[in-house]
């Protein structure tokens, strides 16, 4: 494992910690898209089907369990917790799941490495992860001011994508037969979605202003 991959995993973990911090300490999920969180839960559930059958490393198994556990508990908090759910911005979080889920599933049926249930679902999870942030970005755009924790949450998620991209470039040059066109394709789309957000994030940071995305 290289340093870029590790940094990517840690920023991914940081994004989840920031989100849980918001939910646990402020008891608020304002500005967080439940649609995106549900899509992430679906992403992890379909990607980590091999968690108990294929052993890679203790690190790998533990991280998978953390991502699965946290993503489903975040969804639970936003839907069921007696105070957290009241802060959910339901009226602005209107993006439809199936607009993303259906095309990703159809694409995974056609573009995959092998036509098996596990391989198709794994490919589906990559395609879905690439676009799962869209409802969150839409919600950010509709929010007048984005609070710090929400802004940092999306920032860490974007940083995770950036580091994974560098990791693939690194692996491409250091490992033989490292051909991963599905990962590359989905990863580039996913990282590109953050470019706009990063521009406004750094601009607000530089000018010491509250983050606000233009509608």
């Amino acid at each position: 494992m290289n340093i870029f991959r590790l940094t990517g995993d840690l920023t991914h973990l940081m994004s989840i910690i920031v989100l849980l911090l918001k939910i646990h300490t402020i008891k608020s999920c304002a500005g967080i898209s439940l649609k995106t969180q549900e899509l992430y839960a679906l992403v992890f559930a379909t990607r980590y089907l091999d968690i108990f059958t294929t052993y890679i490393s203790l690190y790998n198994t533990v991280m998978k369990l953390i991502f699965l556990g946290t993503s489903f508990s975040i969804v639970w908090y936003m839907r069921r917790h007696k105070t957290v759910r009241l802060s959910y911005d339901k009226n602005n979080d209107t993006f439809r799941h199936y607009f993303l889920v259906l095309p990703c599933f159809l694409l995974a049926l056609v573009l995959n490495n092998r036509f098996t249930v596990r391989e198709v679902l794994w490919t589906f999870s990559l395609y879905l992860e690439a676009v799962a942030i869209i409802p969150q970005l839409v919600l950010l755009q509709r929010s007048k001011n984005v609070d710090n924790l929400t802004g940092n949450y999306v920032f860490f998620l974007g940083a995770y994508r950036g580091f994974y991209l560098i990791n693939w470039i690194y692996r491409y040059f250091t490992e033989n037969h490292y051909r991963r066109w599905i990962t590359w394709m989905a990863g580039i789309v996913q990282t590109a979605l953050y470019v706009d957000f990063f521009y406004y994030y750094f601009k607000s940071w530089k000018n010491n202003e509250k983050l606000k995305l233009p509608a």
Partner: peptide
Amino acid sequence: ADTEETKDEL
């Protein structure tokens, strides 16, 4: 399994 991608990432 030549075309199968390595699944060591998260």
